[in-house]
């Protein structure tokens, strides 16, 4: 099983976002792997190991499109256990979901993975488009917003669950496919490869941290840097960002001292009850 996991570098979502003069100021931020993509890496690692912490069978390739220092995030993913990494030089300003998908598409054609596994959305752009566009461009099936993956022993199909508006939807999908994951994919028993792990297999209830051993091992792993042009990707963006602004500030709220005061305010002032 060869799994390609596209990962985006995003600004730390827990830092206060600076929005001024029509743009987002990321000068002071720290960068990290998009959380949903990190969950996809964890899922890919589970699908390729013989039970928790077992030997890796198959290959997990992580890929990112970004500036040169995105190598720091890729190294972290290598230290988590990914086999190798590819960094495609790119600048967020010259990318949109379609272009990212087209670049990834050419890489998929070259790498021939059995599965592309990625986050459902990046927490900066919040587009939630790349996986679906990639699947469309490859003519592959797609399974989005996954909460669980059970990979069949023959590696040719998977039974997945998706969290949808009305509840939990179960689907069967043939491989190769593009799958996008939601946060519950890192649950203890959310992901399993029938060929490698028994039904009793359990993992931690979260994505793994890089171990010291993993960090040392990562130094010897391949991190290849290439350009979109070398993949033969032409064309430009289809969606242009015009400007950003801060959302309207909520008027300062008040602290109330008692339930009586709260009910009085909701009734007389806000008039909502």
């Amino acid at each position: 099983m060869k799994i390609l996991v596209p990962c985006k570098r995003v600004p730390n979502p827990d830092l206060k976002l600076k929005v001024a003069n029509g743009s987002v100021d990321l000068a002071g931020t720290t960068w990290q792997v998009n959380p949903f993509d990190e969950y996809a890496v964890e899922a890919a690692l589970r699908l390729t190991e013989k039970g928790k912490g077992g030997e890796r069978v198959g290959e997990v390739v992580v890929v990112s499109i970004g500036p040169k220092d995105t190598s720091a995030q890729l190294k972290q993913l290598l230290a988590m256990g990914a086999n190798r990494a590819i960094l495609i030089a790119g600048d967020d300003g010259a990318l949109d979901a379609d272009r990212v998908a087209r670049i990834l598409g050419t890489l998929v054609v070259a790498e021939k993975p059995d599965l592309v596994l990625m986050g459902k959305q990046a927490v900066d752009g919040d587009d939630n488009q790349v996986g679906q566009i990639l699947a469309a461009s490859l003519g592959w099936p797609q399974a989005t917003f996954l909460a669980s993956i059970l990979l069949a022993a023959d590696g040719k199909s998977a039974t997945v669950t998706r969290e949808v508006d009305a509840g939990v939807e179960e689907r069967r999908v043939h491989l190769p496919a593009v799958m996008t994951v939601d946060l519950r994919i890192v649950g203890k028993k959310a992901v399993r490869n029938e060929a490698l792990a028994p039904a009793t297999a359990e993992w931690e209830d979260t994505q793994r941290l890089a171990s010291l051993k993993g960090i040392m091992a990562a130094k010897k792993k391949e991190l290849r840097e290439i350009t979109a042009e070398s993949l033969g990707v032409a064309g430009g963006i289809l969606v242009k960002t015009l400007r950003h602004e801060a959302p309207p500030a909520r008027k300062a709220g008040v602290k109330v001292a008692s339930v009586e005061e709260l009910v009085a305010k909701l009734h007389n002032e806000a008039k909502v009850i």
Binding site: L17, D96, N128, L238
Partner: peptide, 28 residues
């Protein structure tokens, strides 16, 4: 080209949408 989760129509091809978990509004 696609705009996700628009909150306003600005023009025939221009839209406003939340980004950064709603910490910015972005016109595309």
């Amino acid at each position: 080209g696609m705009a996700s989760e628009i909150v306003a129509v600005i023009g025939a091809k221009a839209f406003r949408r939340p980004t950064y978990a709603g910490n910015a509004l972005t016109d595309v």
